[in-house]
Design a binder for these strands. Structure first.
Lengths: 112, 112
DNA sequence: TCGTCATGCAACCTTTTGATTGCATTTTCT
DNA sequence: AGAAAATGCAATCAAAAGGTTGCATGACGA
């Protein structure tokens, strides 16, 4: 595995952030985090978009690892995977740490 | 301002996450966080995409408040705005806090 | 001033994304 | 069995995103 593809590097987080970068999806994720497992119908009722649109958004969130689903009878229930949110936060932390290190280097340079 | 539009709510963070949801932009942001202010030419040399593509990506990052630019002679220098990264992290924290509260409510319910 | 380096601007193109509609399938309940 | 509910699947569409090329503009330096 090349260094550029090493896991944990911020670049790998792009698909994760992309999944979070849509109002409808963020709304779904928030509702799932707040309300436990919900069916597609439950999620799409009270949504401005159609059931199929909701299904597609859930699929995107699922690909990003942010939610997962399981069958229960004739329903398909979706629940949040909050550990993935921590991943996103860690990536942001990595980037801002680079910034802090850059400041430190600048400070060192000025002190010379 | 309606409650749904109140600042600080996770939904407002969608454009911010969307800006982070692209490999090229994340790469630019990381380089800017690591290396101080850089010109468009400096950023596009060593990039797989053209200078104009880089310009567009910087514009997106700028709209999201993640970077800003200033003129210096004939160059336009770009620098990171790391406080915006903290905003993104706070939004994620809000969502995962909802999750924790949901768990607490479930625990309360089970104990009854 | 004249060539050159760094950008800005604009048209254009292709792929992806977000969303819709219509119909098929699966499961439940009477 | 037969109707209704929940979902799956597929075709389609408009708009946005990502990228490129070509040319214009602006600033520096010999």
């Amino acid at each position: 595995m090349s260094p550029a593809d090493a896991p944990g590097l911020p670049l790998d987080a792009a698909p994760l952030f992309s999944a979070l970068g849509d109002r409808t999806r963020l709304d779904l994720l928030v509702r799932l985090c707040a309300g436990g497992a919900l069916s597609i119908t439950a999620l799409s009722s009270g949504s401005p978009v159609s059931r199929q649109a909701v299904t597609k958004h859930l699929e995107v969130l699922s690909q990003a690892g942010l939610v997962r689903s399981f069958r229960q009878g004739r329903e398909r229930l979706w629940e949040a995977e909050p550990r993935r949110l921590d991943d996103a936060r860690r990536h942001l932390e990595l980037i801002s740490r680079q910034w802090d290190e850059a400041l430190d280097r600048l400070k060192q340079y000025v002190e010379d």
